[in-house]
Design a protein around this nucleic acid. Structure first.
Lengths: 137, 137
DNA sequence: TACATTTACTTGCAAAAAGCAAGTGATTTT
DNA sequence: AAAATCACTTGCTTTTTGCAAGTAAATGTA
């Protein structure tokens, strides 16, 4: 558990202290858009996160109340990671990040359908994603 | 100039490679919301960024096409930093980050007015902020 | 019931990045 | 002409990241 000093009262700074590193939002993305929920699944991300870094980020996300660990229904060797309400509230940020990237880089095929939905009805997409995630709480 | 290898084709990953560190979005915030535009002003941020780090982040933001350096109208000892179109397109992300933080931390007085505007009319706020920034291009 | 496998991590060490304090050189002000 | 401002740079220490290997509990397999 590393507690870092608050750098300022700015809300942007507050947010970046919670998820402003190279990995946290990718983990959130996987929990949110890719329906991953175990350590092993998260470790197999395209970006190849090192296992110690994954463990560290999962801990800090948990300490920041963005994710929570639960018993896995299938096996007690597994751990179920899921977004809390606070974590699900990051959906609009993830959506905007996707939309920004869409303007400035090529989107891979497998993400195009999601982008199309975000563009067609941003609010609807967010509400729907939220609803699906809340089913697991 | 540091060129980093692309970690994956994911748009979220692409975005984080451009601004996914502890400082870049704070610099963008200052250029966007606090109307700072010189190295000296940016160096005086609440978060007290070290000058070498500031220089490094400004360079990487420039390399990523998010900001650009211009001649300062007042003096050639000064440099004018400003957001490019690509940088201005980060406004929706900055807005969502502010709104997320508002739910989970106390907002300082001096930011409350901006938050009120974002809440009252998000689209209008974004359009207006964009218009103001474009005046300087 | 033994043995290999899966799962979620931890450990040790090297490399990279961040952070601090001081310095530099070109303007600009006095 | 000297002092101050401005935008950085440099050298060095501390912190974080990343890689490779290891561990312990739970589960699957012969």
């Amino acid at each position: 558990m590393k507690t870092q000093k608050k750098r300022s009262d700015c809300p942007v700074s507050f947010s970046l202290e919670a998820f402003g590193d190279k990995w946290s939002l990718l983990i959130v993305r996987d929990l949110m858009l890719k329906k991953k929920c175990t350590y092993g699944e998260l470790a197999k991300s395209d970006e190849k996160i090192a296992t110690n870094i994954l463990a560290a980020r999962l801990l800090s996300l948990e300490e920041n109340g963005i994710i929570q660990k639960m018993e896995h229904p299938d096996s007690k060797a597994k751990v179920l990671y899921q977004l809390t309400q606070k974590g699900m509230d990051l959906i609009p940020i993830i959506v905007e990040i996707n939309l920004w990237a869409e303007k400035y880089t090529n989107i891979p095929e497998e993400r195009k359908e999601l982008l199309a939905q975000m563009n067609a009805d941003k609010e609807g997409f967010i509400k729907n994603a939220l609803k699906e995630l809340e089913l697991n709480l």
